[in-house]
Amino acid sequence: MKILVCISHVPDTTSKISFTDNHTKFDSNGVQFIIGPYDDYALARAIEIKEATGGTVTVLNVGEADTEPTIRKALAIGADDAIRVNAFPSDSYFVAQQIASIAKEEKYDMILMGRESIDFNGGMVHGMVGEMLGIPSVSPVMKLEVEGGKAKMAREIEGGKEYLEVSLPLVAGCQEPIAEWKIPNMRGIMSARTKPLKVVEPASNDTRTKLSQYQMPAAKGAVKMVSADNVAELVSLLKNEAKVL
């Protein structure tokens, strides 16, 4: 089983978000970056499948040199080797093209990634990669088992679950509880030092979107406590202050 896991390099979920350059650039100063949490689930499941059935796990990241600590963590968790496409991941289409270009050459049995990144939350890359390669893509996948050249999956749908059997090769956008996040151990961190991390230049520089500006959500208003036995005041506040009634 030859598995590719695509990881994004995203701000930690507790980061304070701010922008520079007239709201056109994310201010990464002092921000801790992590493997996208959904991608981390995909990676954990890929390692489990490799441990159970053998094979290899390659991690891929589209990013500039500053993403390498994030890639090394994926190697420490248990991936065998890594590829970094040396470019800023400017939009989903751009990222999908890089993944598809590498996957065309390498012929992976499965291409796993998170259902979405947690920075731009586009949730489009897996679908695009599937289209570009002409293979099935499924998301969000909560369960993934491989049996006799087929993948058995459970997918979250509105109000329920969908159970699928999909032929390989495939693309999957993963989410919990597909596997539990793995914490790298010290031996893994040590061995990640010498695992191959190949840097390649982007196959194409084609992007389909152009960023105009970022905007922060409006600050949360103050909380007003109303005593439980004072319904009249609550109604008056909702009517006159919040103007929702």
Binding site: E68, A76, I183, P184, M186, I189
Partner: peptide
């Protein structure tokens, strides 16, 4: 970077 990964891994643990 390796030191920081070690620290964050043990902290997560």
């Amino acid at each position: 970077e390796e030191h920081k990964l070690i620290r964050s891994s043990i902290r997560d643990f």
